[in-house]
Simulated scan of single mutants.
Amino acid sequence: MSITLSDAQIVTPDGVHHGWLTIEEGRITHVGHGQAPRNGHSLAGQTIVPGFVDIHVHGGGGAGYPAGSEEQARQTIAFHRRHGTTTALASLVTAPLDHLKKSAGMLAKLCAEGLLAGIHYEGPYISAARCGAHRPELLRAPSATEFADLIGAGDGHVRMFTLAPELPNALDAVRECVNAGVIAAIGHTDATYEQAMAAIDEGASVATHLFNAMRPLGHRDPGPITAAMTDDRVTVEIVNDGVHLHPKVIDLVLSAVPTSRIAFITDAMNAAGMPDGDYPLGPMKVEVRSGVARLAGGGAIAGSTLTMDTAFHRAIHHNNLTLPQAAAVTSLTPAKILGLSHEIGSITTGKQADLVILNESLTITGVMKKGTWITQPTP
């Protein structure tokens, strides 16, 4: 079956042009300028960007991955797909090891179905001093046996592990990640600059939600933030929701780090897309007030209520990125992190037809995954 989308503003890594594209058997086969050679689905001047890739997301639409429920996992996937996320990791939070392994086993089946791109363990090997919305009593130092068990529980689908490099045996854990083909991410850490660099030298390649739950940047204590921002081997995650980071801090990162090393994430939890109220985040209780999620009792920020379409919108309107730059930080760079940029992440001939259609106000009107409409746009 062939689909032609015409009369559209198409955002590619090279720029934006008015034209058309053709999809056959779930892949982009042609990208053309101007008038389409044959009648197709006219988008009446709307914009096509690549499907969003979220490498750090816990939940949304009233459901979440840490619950360990397949029904909740499917609900979360469907919610974020409607908001343009066509590829995602399922992020877990610190919990008892048995629960983590059981959750990973369930999520592995959804990965095998093609619904998820992998599993992300955020914890339990993180710093008590920077634990944020993780239960301190469940934190632990890395153990080679435990680590192997957690990775094994994902049946080949564990893609990322966030840990604090200053913990005992943490560098061994980073090496284990690299050897297992798992991305080692530095996060929830009180590491010094030197400790962070030691982890990067061992193969750590992502900084989990830069600035958040990290030793702060000091002028004589550069810490993990400086290590991540200044090392070309590291991609930094940014939560662009107007809560986790001041927009000018994001501008600072964007001025210092190329978009090829910046991945916007949601870090969304169950309350994304839901009204204010009380929600779970793994074993923790979270209060959402005015759209801001915090641990019950006014504690630490506990994930976000962000969706990737909003992060994209903010990239344009708050950080003055161009459309191709915004597509890079929400699609192409995270696809590269996952080793999937040959398949997804940009509107390029031969890649999967994972597409998001945006109207003039950059609101989603349509979402396509592998050539099939999740939400079909109207002109």
Score class of each variant (00 low, 15 high):
residue 350 G to N: 02
residue 329 V to W: 06
residue 84 G to L: 04
residue 194 E to L: 14
residue 207 A to V: 02
residue 24 E to I: 14
residue 145 T to K: 15
residue 75 Q to W: 10
residue 335 A to Y: 02
residue 187 G to A: 11
residue 232 D to Q: 15
residue 184 A to C: 08
residue 157 H to P: 10
residue 310 T to W: 11
residue 278 D to A: 15
residue 145 T to S: 14
residue 140 R to H: 06
residue 105 G to S: 04
residue 302 A to R: 03
residue 227 A to T: 00
residue 150 L to T: 05
residue 334 P to H: 08
residue 210 L to A: 06
residue 229 M to I: 08
residue 16 V to P: 01
residue 76 T to E: 05
residue 186 I to F: 01
residue 239 V to H: 04
residue 17 H to V: 09
residue 367 V to A: 00
residue 39 N to M: 15
residue 15 G to Q: 09
residue 354 D to A: 04
residue 341 S to K: 12
residue 171 L to V: 11
residue 324 P to T: 03
residue 325 Q to A: 07
residue 228 A to K: 01
residue 54 D to A: 03
residue 202 E to K: 13
residue 364 I to C: 00
residue 49 V to S: 01
residue 19 G to Y: 01
residue 185 A to E: 11
residue 216 P to F: 09
residue 83 H to P: 08
residue 356 V to D: 00
residue 112 A to I: 12
residue 51 G to S: 08
residue 289 R to P: 12
residue 362 L to C: 05
residue 223 G to I: 01
residue 336 K to R: 15
residue 41 H to T: 15
residue 260 S to Q: 13
residue 365 T to Q: 10
residue 283 P to K: 10
residue 296 A to Y: 14
residue 326 A to M: 08
residue 242 G to F: 01
residue 89 L to H: 12
residue 249 V to D: 09
residue 164 A to W: 02
residue 248 K to P: 08
residue 20 W to I: 01
residue 340 L to R: 09
residue 377 P to S: 01
residue 346 S to C: 02
residue 337 I to F: 06
residue 73 A to R: 06
residue 328 A to I: 12
residue 49 V to E: 00
residue 45 G to V: 06
residue 212 N to C: 04
residue 357 I to T: 09
residue 241 D to I: 04
residue 151 I to P: 04
residue 339 G to W: 03
residue 242 G to Y: 00
residue 263 A to P: 09
residue 313 H to E: 10
residue 243 V to Y: 10
residue 51 G to M: 08
residue 11 V to W: 00
residue 51 G to Q: 06
residue 374 I to V: 10
residue 354 D to P: 03
residue 170 A to P: 05
residue 213 A to Y: 03
residue 144 A to V: 11
residue 239 V to I: 14
residue 355 L to N: 07
residue 47 T to K: 03
residue 183 I to F: 06
residue 111 C to A: 13
residue 103 S to K: 02
residue 236 V to C: 12
residue 161 F to A: 12
residue 39 N to H: 15
residue 248 K to H: 15
residue 121 Y to V: 09
residue 152 G to R: 13
residue 93 V to N: 00
residue 219 H to E: 12
residue 305 T to Q: 03
residue 95 A to D: 14
residue 113 E to W: 03
residue 337 I to V: 13
residue 296 A to E: 13
residue 326 A to N: 06
residue 58 H to L: 04
residue 49 V to F: 02
residue 267 D to N: 10
residue 316 I to R: 12
residue 152 G to Y: 09
residue 137 E to V: 13
residue 225 I to G: 00
residue 325 Q to W: 03
residue 290 S to A: 15
residue 271 A to Q: 05
residue 81 R to A: 12
residue 332 L to Q: 09
residue 301 I to Q: 08
residue 318 H to C: 11
residue 95 A to N: 13
residue 242 G to H: 01
residue 373 W to M: 10
residue 344 I to H: 12
residue 310 T to R: 12
residue 340 L to H: 02
residue 223 G to N: 00
residue 119 I to K: 02
residue 353 A to F: 01
residue 84 G to S: 05
residue 100 L to A: 02
residue 289 R to M: 15
residue 282 G to P: 04
residue 126 I to G: 08
residue 27 R to I: 11
residue 228 A to Q: 01
residue 320 N to H: 14
residue 236 V to W: 07
residue 234 V to W: 11
residue 88 A to R: 13
residue 215 R to K: 13
residue 365 T to S: 11
